[in-house]
Nucleic acid binder design. Structure first.
Lengths: 350, 350
DNA sequence: CTTTAGCACTCCTTTGCCTCGAGTGCTAAA
DNA sequence: TTTAGCACTCGAGGCAAAGGAGTGCTAAAG
């Protein structure tokens, strides 16, 4: 059953007022906010309907109304004005983005920090590979008779390297052969398969080759495993403590724990969805039942995408957060589209 | 003026009781805890003295006593029993340490997490170079006509690498020459000096060499700068919320902010000091005035040292935390002493 | 000189009670 | 369908009383 226009308008007023003031909204205020066209008594009738329909809630009998999750959902879907951000805000975001960003990990972490400060709520940030990661290329560089550097390039052109120490000496002459072996047999496959192939080679190779080979493969497995498990960065966690709904320590505690110790449980976004808003109980995670999350994705290129989420009370300013977050995500996509690793120095992100 | 033995004993009882129960300690309890040898009235006289001397405080007239920072200090310096940790605890710590640890950054972060769970308080962890970091060696690996991989090894045998894209094509033949140039002129120096030398070469080199060279140097500068700024990892921040002294949101907020957003301000340790305890106002940092920090260092080798700190209320269990933390730090030092990058698989850490 | 029993006193905490006010829901009339 | 009117509900805040833990002081005992 579709709500009447007036009911929707009332719901909108209630929601926006409650978002702004964090206090239950009474009929008198609503009547006034709607221009005094109808009396507060009329509003009360409408409020009773809206409450019965589940869009509003009453903290107690003699209090005003606050939106229920269902009410917020309707607000977000239909009532909220998808306001574009102001020029000034855009300017701020651009300025922040033009600050130097270095490695990918670093950028992802920094993006989270920026969003947190832009949105005024805690934020989290992940870079996720769209598929599984494999090694595309190996290089081995001689260091001394027992050490060499392994350089591993994975899908997405990310390069990792480490100094490895072999118990058995490795001559610089052997390294190219080893690298060949690695490049011909150990590219494009997963970590387990690597282990199996390595086992298969154990009998065919002498220890003086097998030892450094297994070191390199152990390292490579570690690299692809650690890039498979997406590191989640969180920032601005303490901002929730400023929200009146989290003055209650136990609630704040749960959320803080999620945002610091159990970051992996933060909601992710279906692929191909640019942005999603999860309101209160729509969240699967227990700790988020009294909170809302706005999460957006951006393209990093190289088959990777980034995810940025904002966590706040259900009474979050959805319109503002959604506008800023989506602008930010779009800016990031543009930035990565232009050049792979470095931010543009010019001013023409728009 | 040196305290009498009995006064010290009383201070010890008060401190330990307060640490355990988080409630002011009364004269009756103390008399009982001391075996009933003296009456509570006698204790009251002693308490009045200790209060006047500044070792104890009274939240209000009719409450028991709690230790002042000065009292804690005396307790930590003289009264606390430096108990060795139990075999079971040692076992737990060893078990945790034998879990797989991968890269250095990762290890440092993990160490912080372990300590937090061992101590039951938030913890932080840093790896600090003892001097400034410089590049020791460069390698350049061809990828395609406009891209190559730069591999940079710094003091401490840490290896970093990244794919670089040059606007101007670079032929694979040019790379060894470039690498030579880098290795002969751009090792062992700081980032600013690199910049200057690069400027000096600008006129002597053609653009087809200068372009990739400057890319590599920009990257190298970034590497040494980012290893100079020590990344601080924090874990278990939410544990402070369980402490009764931080039920007050505003205090908790300050500390949380320090432990999440301003981690760089956490106290560090003078070189050559194995462990330090900072009690309440002994902390320079405002946010730590009502908290205490126990911080210990360990040797990573390669001219690096690690730092691990535990943050808790002034009413922290100093004896337990200090014992566990120092055992942990010593274990780490031993672990790194044995082999540079990987934890021992054997069981003979002891 | 030190220790101790006794006791008045202080001050926090809890509890109950009261009032106040915001806001509702219902009724009856417009 | 809207509105004025009104009784009613319920939380917030203030206040006083009761309860209790613990002190500080005094005077006597060791």
């Amino acid at each position: 059953m579709e709500l009447t226009g007036r009911k929707k308008q009332i719901l909108k007023v209630v929601t926006e007022r409650y978002i702004a003031a964090a206090e239950p909204v009474g009929s008198k205020f609503i009547a006034q906010a709607m221009g005094g066209a109808v009396s507060s008594a009329t509003i009360r009738n409408e409020l009773a309907d809206l409450t019965e329909l589940g869009y509003l809630e009453q903290p107690h009998t003699s209090a005003g109304r606050i939106p229920s999750p269902k009410g917020y959902r309707l607000y977000v879907n239909e009532l909220m004005e998808r306001k574009a951000i102001s020029d000034q805000e855009a300017e701020e975001i651009n300025a922040a983005l033009h600050g130097k960003m270095k490695e990918l990990d670093n950028m992802v972490a920094q993006a989270g920090q920026m969003v947190s400060s832009i949105a005024g709520y805690p934020a989290y940030s992940v870079a996720a590979g769209k598929g599984s990661v494999t090694v595309r290329r190996y290089d081995l560089l001689p260091v001394d008779e027992s050490s060499f550097i392994a350089v591993v390039m994975t899908d997405g052109s990310r390069v990792k390297s480490q100094l490895l120490h072999s118990q058995i000496p490795v001559t610089p002459e052997e390294l190219p052969a080893l690298a060949n072996l690695l490049n011909s047999h150990f590219t494009g496959i997963g970590a387990e398969e690597m282990g199996q192939k390595l086992m298969g080679l154990a009998s065919q190779l002498g220890a003086e080759l097998f030892m450094p080979l297994s070191l390199a493969i152990e390292y490579a497995s570690g690299v692809i495993e650690s890039s498979a498990q997406n590191h989640v960065y969180a920032a601005g966690q303490t901002r929730i403590l400023a929200q009146p709904e989290f003055q209650d320590l136990s609630k704040a505690n749960e959320l803080m724990a999620l945002l610091t110790d159990r970051k992996d449980n933060l909601p992710v976004l279906d692929e191909n969805t640019p942005m999603q808003i999860l309101i209160g109980p729509e969240n699967v995670n227990e700790a988020l039942r009294d909170a809302s999350v706005v999460v957006a994705s951006y393209d990093i290129g190289d088959n990777m995408r980034g995810l940025i989420g904002v966590v706040g009370p259900t009474r979050m300013d959805y319109a503002a957060v959604a506008a800023r977050l989506s602008y930010f995500a779009e800016s990031l996509t543009k930035m990565f589209g232009k050049n792979h690793q470095l931010p543009p120095k010019e001013d023409d992100i728009s």
